[in-house]
Design a protein around this nucleic acid. Sequence first.
DNA 1: AAAATAGTGTCTATGAGACACTATAGT
DNA 2: ACTATAGTGTCTCATAGACACTATTTT
Lengths: 251, 251
Amino acid sequence: MSADQPRRDPEEQAFLAAYDASEFAHPSVAVDVVLATVDAGILRALLVRRAEHPAKGSWALPGGFVGFDESLDAAVERVLQRKAGLENVFVEQLYTFGAPDRDPRTRVISVAYYALVDAATLHAAQPANGGVVLATIDVPWDGLDGGDVVALADGAQLPLAFDHATILGAAVQRLRGKIDYAPIGFELLPQRFTLRQLQTVHETVLGHAVNKDSFRRRVLASGQIVPTGERETDVLHRPAELYELHPSTGR
Amino acid sequence: MSADQPRRDPEEQAFLAAYDASEFAHPSVAVDVVLATVDAGILRALLVRRAEHPAKGSWALPGGFVGFDESLDAAVERVLQRKAGLENVFVEQLYTFGAPDRDPRTRVISVAYYALVDAATLHAAQPANGGVVLATIDVPWDGLDGGDVVALADGAQLPLAFDHATILGAAVQRLRGKIDYAPIGFELLPQRFTLRQLQTVHETVLGHAVNKDSFRRRVLASGQIVPTGERETDVLHRPAELYELHPSTGR
DNA sequence: AAAATAGTGTCTATGAGACACTATAGT
DNA sequence: ACTATAGTGTCTCATAGACACTATTTT
């Protein structure tokens, strides 16, 4: 560490050059949204086919540029409404990707978000235009290692635009790190759900099986969910009790 | 790291050549850095006095606009070098703040980072200009609740510019959530440290005392640190063994 | 009745907290 | 010798995993 080096003119000039550049040309700012769901034990995310250059024909996260007077959250809502026909979805900011060459058009800094929704709601919402697919996300790493992921549709790998494989990987990594202590698993289920469904959601996100007994104990002891007194129907076995989020959690 | 870029055909190259990024008004993009340290059991952060409007006279996080061809990480490095005279500091992205009215000049989207350094290094580093203070951070909430924090110098509260009290609070919240499982406590200590020093760092960040016995057991069992065989000197009591990060951790 | 999953009770292993005790520096 | 903190050994308690067992639905 050379923290005690005196400041020299070149450093000051570098600062001034960078500052002046920012006065003339500003980067573009976009939001990209990882809209994820768990469907029958499979992790999926919505992708949009790029109809125009750049990366024409490859698949991208739904996204868009941030308006000059538009908040980041508002931009995300607009994107979700327009590309997936969804409103009032659980959304959290993920990370901001700012490599100078990540978009060939110009400098684009992208603030990535993830949105979670249950599979039924996502299937019911019809996107305004075509060119949209609910891709299967294949995670080629274990635990919290991180890295790019692979998107599949009909068994074939989809080419992903820009650095979106990295953004998808970061979203999976964040979900895996958070699901054990934050109430995000519920966002991937309908309002009423069984403990088995919740366990499947956790297992799908984490990428490995979890212990049934301790999972039930832990979830019930957390006080986050309450039994409804009703049971699931149309199953081939003993029906499980339906639970819902504790009213104080407000959903 | 980043995914393979799709092949560029002539049509796409023509599109890129004709692309005009200045078609719309773009927000400005800045980085703000929470440069934090733990000094004798006190959490501190570097603040810079604003010499110009807006918020003239109040205190702000060190920051600066991102150059058009400059990566976010490079902008953070530049800010740390210029405002604190530091290089090779541990840095991680925190969150991006984008409320349209957070800066009265114009639309400024700020990508916030936090940087961690040990107190001795921070004291040794000479900031380029005056108007810099190492403020005490007072956290008026417990655990992971979150919220604004208060900056103090010489016992008096410092007025904070823009939304920087919120950014500082988010940094504390992130550190508290991460220190139990991520190796960030070591970044706040010199290369060699005692277990008691490490415990004090944890207690200062968390805002509450931790159990000595289980802390020692947990840290030693993690295998992250190794004993050096040497002991501290010039203390009024039995000197403790000095530890350092396990070589494989690479620092 | 058979099949399948829901749900309960209990034993064990592990890790945290508590506490007593010994060790070693400076004064 | 006294004081303060370092460091160790052991007991207890809480929680996760494992496993056996019972309960309840459809076919």
